[in-house]
């Protein structure tokens, strides 16, 4: 493709640049501003230097939330990615089943997050919830408001229910882009089902899988609404993930300085981990060439 160099083209990105500046850069700078100052209200600020950062990084509360969040992200990735691939592989490629499956798959993605939380909050209740009542009548004393393990299980199952569809749809898009000739050739070459997956389907899904993993990681690492609605971070602090902790600190306790410092650390962690994911996955791609 021929490239034309014309500096006037920069003006074309100006509107987006302004938009991003107002919606992202300026708020971020405000947060930076808060993170190095202390205030006692009345719009008076005092220079605090790196105090807040030190405080956050040395607080067990922050590290606990971080670990919780990392484990949560790890678990849901370990479930949603293989499950998503498996469902995508088994979805029909022709006929009336295609739109039916696609709509069914898209449904959870269309539901507002707080509604998802509410659905599961009610669903899991021991007294009136279908799931909670059913489990208890089976003799399992399930109660997500008292047992941390149950709370975790509920939040994880909810996330899997809500977001596996995204992985499915992305994988499916990768799968349908494979021409029929590949499958026919594989049949003629006598390839097993596993070989077809390993040498045809997986390589073709690789790029969309990368996107799926990145999106799911970032989203789950920033998860707030659903666990907040279902468990409110409890019982105790057992489902208090980073963003829930952050909101408690900023809005609940009105500790603007530490909350701002935590926001920046949080942001940097996501940026770093996303970069690591991306590099690792594209690197392995490059090595194979």
């Amino acid at each position: 493709m021929e490239k034309t160099w014309n500096n006037k083209a920069w003006f074309l990105v100006l509107p987006v640049l302004l938009l991003v500046a107002f919606s992202a850069v300026i708020p971020l700078m405000t947060v930076v501003n808060y993170s190095v100052q202390d205030t006692f209200g009345n719009n008076q600020f005092f220079w605090a230097g790196t105090d807040w950062f030190v405080e956050i990084l040395t607080s067990p509360r922050f590290w606990d939330a971080l670990w919780r969040n990392l484990i949560f992200s790890g678990v849901i990735l370990a479930i949603e990615v293989p499950l998503g691939i498996l469902i995508a592989l088994n979805m029909p490629k022709h006929g009336i089943g295609v739109p039916v499956c696609l709509v069914l798959m898209a449904l959870p993605l269309l539901i507002p997050w707080n509604v998802v939380g509410t659905i599961w909050q009610v669903f899991g209740r021991v007294d009136i919830g279908l799931l909670g009542y059913f489990l208890n009548s089976l003799g399992i004393s399930y109660n997500y408001t008292q047992n941390p393990a149950h709370a975790w299980a509920t939040v994880i199952v909810m996330d899997v229910w809500h977001w596996t569809s995204l992985v499915v749809l992305l994988c499916y898009a990768g799968l349908v882009s494979i021409p029929d000739a590949y499958y026919q050739a594989a049949r003629i070459d006598g390839a097993s089902r596993w070989s077809v997956f390993r040498y045809i389907q997986l390589p073709k899904m690789k790029r969309v899988l990368l996107i799926a993993v990145l999106l799911r990681f970032m989203d789950s690492f920033m998860i707030y609404t659903e666990p907040f609605v279902v468990t409110g971070g409890g019982p105790g602090n057992s489902t208090t993930f980073l963003s829930i902790d952050l909101v408690k600190m900023a809005i609940g306790q009105f500790d603007l300085g530490p909350a701002a410092a935590m926001s920046i650390i949080y942001f940097l962690i996501i940026l770093l981990l996303s970069w690591v994911f991306y590099t690792v996955m594209t690197q392995s791609d490059a090595e194979q060439k």
Partner: peptide, 13 residues
């Protein structure tokens, strides 16, 4: 039977 198709089919990896 062996068959060769119109468009190349190779196993990329």
């Amino acid at each position: 039977i062996a068959q060769v198709f119109q468009f190349p089919v190779v196993y990329d990896t």
